[in-house]
Amino acid sequence: MKFNVIYIEEKIKDYPNTKEILARINYKKIIYCENYNQVFNPKNQNFRIQKAEPSIILAKKEQNFLLNAPEKFTIGYSKNFYFSHMLNCVYDCKYCFLQGMFNSAHYVIFVNYLDFFNAIKSQVSRSKKTICFFSGYDCDSLALEKITNFLSFFLIKFQKIKNGILEVRTKSTKIDIFKQIKPMNNIVIAFSLNPKHIVKKFEDKTPSLTQRIKAIVELQKLGWNIGLRFDPLIIDNSNNFIIYDFFKFIFDKIETRRIHSVTLGKFRMPKQFFEKFSSLRPNEYFFINKENEKFKNIGIYENQLRKFIDKKKIFRN
């Protein structure tokens, strides 16, 4: 990937990880800032224009390394946190909430990975219960791995976390990192999936459904735990038969026994994000409005899923 401009916070310009990341990027110019917010947060920015040619911003996360996951959000554990070593995503899904949440489409990479890990270590040390940590909510955890090396650093560290589960949420099929290390029981590689025609129509720049299934099969053979995320499941013009066929297409190819969890959820976006989203993508706003109407009965799809996998592994969000 080529980048025209890389923004770097002055205070981290000499961090080893900053230098390592820079060495992996093809860029033309570095511009220094005091705080990434100066570039990322001003209101008068156009997400769509920036998405056409985003820059990278290297920054230091100062606080709030872990955030409480929404109450109902779980894959079977009672305590759940999420964190983001990166803001924004290389993909361009038309329904993505990030475009409603952020003013800028630049990729922010927080280079102080160890601070995230220390926050997790501290959290698990205070708990007797297993805690689940979700990575990849404000980004795709895997898609920029070649630049960030975040998982290379993090997975090895996470081996020591005995009462913690790490979910790595992704649409990426760049699974090299998982081929380089031994499978770990406390890692769930969770793939976001939608029917083929939805991927084509709404998930710009992402790997196809078939490529994702291929990656899942390969990871399962290596021994990794897999999560399936139909969340959001986008229905579009699909009838119930199409969704059933979509589930069948997946479960015919993968090993159900080695599926850690399946989540099912409809499209949702906080109201203030939705307002912004409607002006950035009026076409999709129109579609999403209709989509939510159709999704009144999510139970139908859950019943379909139960034909393929144990209901205890299915979680509705």
């Binding site: 025209n4 401009v5 033309k28 110019k29 800032c33 100066q38 056409a52 040619e53």
Partner: peptide, 15 residues
């Protein structure tokens, strides 16, 4: 105060 104009590769000028 700092301000950062948006620079893209199509802008051929030195900056």
């Amino acid at each position: 105060k700092l301000f950062f104009p948006h620079i893209i590769s199509n802008f051929k000028l030195d900056h």
